[in-house]
Amino acid sequence: MTELQLIGLGTWSPKHGNWAEFCTGVTTGDWRDDVMLQPDLIPPRERRRAPQLVKMAIEVMDQACKIADLAPDDVAIVFSSVMGDLQITDYMCTALAQTPKLVSPTKFHNSVHNAAPGYWSITTGAFCPASAVSAYEFTSTMALLEASVQAVEEQTPVLCVTQEIAAPLALMDTCPSEVPFSAAFLLAPAGYSDAPLATLRFAVEPGEAEWPALEEGFAEFASNMSARLLPLLASLARGDDANLSFPVNAATRIVISASLDGS
């Protein structure tokens, strides 16, 4: 059993701009349409050039740090996504299928999976450890597990991001993500904060698990493999304690309980 604190949350999709709007959506069914992505942390000129995937990550990471009232240069990062920047992959593979093969140097250096933590480090001046991971369909649960173990073993806050942008047509058959979704969990070792959002407990055990069903309001995220922690977020948004099982691979599951009164 692993115990740790959830001290900040951030989330974004085209139908909600932040955690407060997510809570409103979950409790009242009122969602917004076509929410713009405008991360304040990135200077406006840089913002125009930054890829969507980077902007989504920076936005939710910044939200989570603000909720926790934690300086953004003081947290380790575990960024995750199944496929990384699907738009840049599409651009690179399209360009390389032509003659002559010409690729943009900026797009190439933005194509690394750790582009988002790289921009975060540059923007915030953070020298902290930063990782970028994938575990295919289990990316979101493995990222949460990786970040939790790091928070406990290194006794440091860790910002875990799980997100996917929409897939271009050619990649739809292999990574069918239709609507972008991003979430950041700011995790800390037990005892770190006097006022955590929740206490999380994990157990990892052999055995299969089904993905918990998404509620009706989340139908458009069903194809987004990085949105599979939505049932946990929805439970937190409603102010309910949670006790959920998720697969971390075909033979192993993680049982996550969240208690909001800090007990």
Binding site: H113, N114, S131, A132, V133, S134, Y136, T174, P206, A250
Partner: peptide, 24 residues
Amino acid sequence: NLHSPGIFVAAVTGITGPSLTIST
């Protein structure tokens, strides 16, 4: 996808514990 090496190595070795691919 980015986890392709993790998927292949787990499948071919029969290891069933947690598996992750780091891409930095």
